[in-house]
Nucleic acid binder design. Structure first.
Length: 719
RNA sequence: GAGCGAUUAGCUCAGCUGGUUAGAGCGCAACAUUGACAUUGUUGAGGCCAGAGGUUCGAAUCCUCUAUCGCUCACCA
């Protein structure tokens, strides 16, 4: 029997592209992405527990890809769930300026179209061009983000370079400087000759290469042979270091020698240092303080000079025409030629080595001594109980104040902290937050504004992660003592990719612990990489890019969301394929048809009693709902999604609806059946809504008996 | 070199704190159906849960070792 009135729309298959834009518009116009509006309208209790997430701000350079889609899907599911569960739920949107990445992208474009470098344009003009670029891409990113159905509170939108965030960054720098945590020093740093800037240890990517390890003496008269893959740097040597227990060389320790190496006079002292490994090479290490981290430290311990022999363009600073002004690779050839001519080489062997390159530019890192700004991670902080930044980062994970999901990342995190050195935060680029340090003659002052006439500001900008590290509280109006900060900080959850655990997550903990004396978030949920069906990384060069927006247009955003969530455990890389997305489109359509069937057979509220069997079915459904609730509470989204999917399709549709067909046709059993089906359907829409917000909302709007205007704000009870 | 993870059906993966005959999706085979369903349904085939030892009344799950793959970290010059 078909007694119900069915909306016209339901008679056709579900058409996501037709439904999605108007649905999102309705959500946005409701104002309910904003928790204060929820309270004002009585939808959230004024004293409700807050639940906060900050969106990891996408780089302004980046178009939305499957990775961002995964992130948005996970976070939106959680946020919608919490909102429906009655939390005072806030999800803060934003974008990141991504200093180096953005500047080099714009520079590249200008180089390509106009053949000009940044030096041709000058600082001001380049920054103007970057601003134009940023304004364009920001809008694109926001629109794309909205298409996924994200319930971000757009009224709180933040950009790392906007006015408020600028103030936060300056204030943070000043407070850390005043606390003696930020210092300026001339020491060896990672220099990227291609990007013409320093970079932090974490921005280095090691690439395996074959190299030749040469074993030789500086000169015929020199008593000890050394080994190196970089003979050209030997013109900067000041010592040969051997292990204190190495009998072979004990008699030479303390001796000094003058030699001429490839035309360059050098003075070599033999020192004993425990950092040298007896078994490697000849057991003797040529010490080049200015161009090697380990050698710099040896020089520290033995009070050795540190002559710089390579410049910022990776060219030689010393020597005759064979070396002077030559690139290091050419100089290496020249030195090897000379060594051969002199008959000094004892051994040449091919070895595997990891070469340090800059993440952004791919340039080969040249360690150089430079005057830079650093964050001291080893200094005891009096206002924080004498603890160091290192300890402040370690503690909350160790104590459980912050939980990382999956938990095995704890070890990775601790290992990183153990090896942590002071953080070099100054960058020689133009786009970013300029360092608030001012110089006048020998004077130096930390000040957000110019201290007055004759003061020059430091030309460098801050590492982009410095500002990102403040994100959980800079988005909540810090340093102002705002209500937002009181209510929403510490945030509840930080959801991001495991690849930025160190870059971002660790540094947010550092900043929040220091500036606020509290953790930035209570839980960290790390998702994996999205790969293609074959398990390859998705990249433009491989041509295997699956564009989430394109897929959304074809199969609906709900299908894209589900395909990213189902079968995806946290911290594990997942695979996506068009086939999988298509499968979930079928599910959206299945829901559509289930609703069609139920509504076709529904005549409105009746005062009927369910049969014992129907009570049992309802109980079974309650159990499923409880399970989904528990799984979501534990952030097991993948199993929650599958549980819901499976129940709807294979229990509700295949079993309950099938067995209902004859019962509905019978006047005695029909009424209670109608009630049962309608009840389970409407509750199912609630439970599925976080996962598939569009189709469920569309269907909710078609339900004849409902007491909320939007499914998005319909309460989710666990029983 | 160190650390971490993975290894479960043809493919992609779930399986939380050990508990009856090990699960899903896709794919495959047969049958049914024009059905609420751009199809869908029913049934089925297919797994010594990488290997070897151990703990236990009981192990895919805990421990040890081995193998293969992957990731991360590292200043062996």
């Amino acid at each position: 029997m078909q007694n119900g009135t069915v909306p016209e729309k339901l008679l056709k298959p579900y058409n996501p592209t037709e439904e999605e834009p108007s649905i999102y518009a309705a959500w946005e116009q409701s104002g309910y992405f904003n928790p204060e509006k929820m309270i004002a309208d009585g939808l959230t209790a004024p004293d409700a527990e807050p639940f906060t997430i900050v969106l990891p701000p996408p780089n302004v350079t980046a178009a939305l890809h499957m990775g961002s889609a995964l992130m948005l899907a996970i976070e939106d599911i959680i946020v919608r769930y919490k909102r429906m569960r009655g939390f005072r739920t806030l999800w803060i949107p934003g974008t990141d300026s991504a200093a180096i990445a953005t500047q080099s992208k714009v520079e590249k474009e200008i180089q390509k179209s106009e053949g000009k470098s940044r030096y041709d344009l000058g600082r001001e003009e380049l920054l103007r061009r970057i601003d134009i670029f940023v304004e364009e891409t920001k809008g694109t990113i926001i629109n794309q983000t909205k298409r996924f159905g994200t319930t971000l509170d757009w009224s709180r939108y933040a950009y790392t370079m906007d006015e408020k965030r600028y103030r936060a960054v300056m204030e943070a720098f000043k407070r850390m400087y005043d606390a003696g945590l930020i210092y300026r020093a001339h020491k060896i740093v990672n220099w990227d000759p291609k990007g013409q800037t320093t970079i932090s240890d974490d921005e280095i990517v090691y690439e395996p290469r074959k190299a030749t390890l040469y074993t030789f003496k500086y000169s015929k008269d020199f008593p000890i042979a050394i080994s190196t893959t970089r003979p050209e740097t030997k013109v900067g040597d000041v010592a040969v270091a051997v292990h204190p227990d190495d009998n072979r060389y004990a008699s030479y320790v303390g001796n000094e020698y003058d030699v001429t190496f490839c035309g360059v006079p050098i003075h070599i002292k033999v020192v004993a240092d425990a950092s040298v490994e007896k078994e490697f090479g000849t057991g003797a290490l040529g010490v080049t303080p200015a161009h090697s981290f380990i050698d710099w430290e040896i020089a520290d311990r033995h009070d050795l000079p540190r002559p710089q022999v390579i410049d910022e363009r990776a060219k030689m600073l010393v020597g005759d025409e064979r070396l002077q002004g030559k690139k290091v690779a050419e100089a290496r050839e020249a030195v090897v030629t000379w060594l051969r001519e002199e008959g000094l080489i004892e051994k040449e062997e091919t070895v595997d080595q990891n070469i340090a390159t800059a993440e952004r530019t791919g340039g080969i890192i040249e360690p150089l001594p430079k005057l830079q700004w650093f964050v001291d991670v080893h200094k005891p902080i009096s206002t924080r109980g004498g603890k160091t930044l290192k300890e402040l980062m370690q503690e909350p994970i160790a104590s459980g104040a912050i939980t990382i999901i999956p938990d095995y990342f704890d070890k990775t995190y601790f290992h990183w902290i153990d090896n942590l050195r002071d953080w070099c935060i100054s960058r020689q680029i133009w786009f970013g937050h300029r360092i608030p340090m001012w110089y006048k003659g020998d004077e130096m002052r930390c000040s957000i504004d110019s201290p007055g006439e004759g003061w020059e500001q430091d030309p460098d900008v801050l590492d982009t992660w410095f500002s990102s590290a403040l994100w959980t509280f800079s988005t909540l109006s810090w340093p102002d003592e705002s209500n937002d900060l009181k209510i929403y900080h510490p945030t509840s959850l930080l959801e991001t990719g495991y690849d930025i655990l160190f870059f971002w997550v660790a540094r947010m903990i550092l900043m929040s612990q220091f500036h606020l004396g509290e953790v930035p978030f209570k839980t960290v949920y790390l998702h994996g990489l999205v790969r293609d069906a074959k398990g390859q990384k998705i990249s433009k060069s491989l041509g295997n890019n699956i564009d989430p927006l394109e897929m959304g247009a074809k199969y609906g955003m709900d299908a894209v969301r589900m395909s990213l969530i189902a079968g995806m455990a946290p911290g594990t890389d997942s695979k996506i394929s068009e086939e999988k997305i298509k499968g979930y489109k079928h599910f959206a359509n299945k829901l559509w048809n289930i609703t069609r069937f139920v509504l076709t057979n529904y005549e409105g509220e009746h005062n009927v009693t369910l049969s014992p069997n129907e009570h049992a079915l309802l109980d079974e459904w309650s159990e499923v709902k409880k399970k989904i609730t528990n799984e979501l509470d534990a952030y097991r989204l993948h199993t929650a999604a599958e549980t819901a999917y499976h129940y709807l399709w294979h229990t509700f549709a295949d079993v309950i609806i099938e067995e209902s067909k004859p019962l509905l046709a019978n006047a005695d059993t029909g009424a209670s059946r109608q009630k049962l089906l309608y009840t389970i359907l409407s509750e199912s829409l609630i439970v599925l809504h976080p996962f598939m917000p569009f189709v469920t909302e569309s269907l909710w709007q078609l339900l004849p008996a409902k007491n909320t205007s939007l499914l998005m704000i319909t309460p989710w009870s666990s029983n």
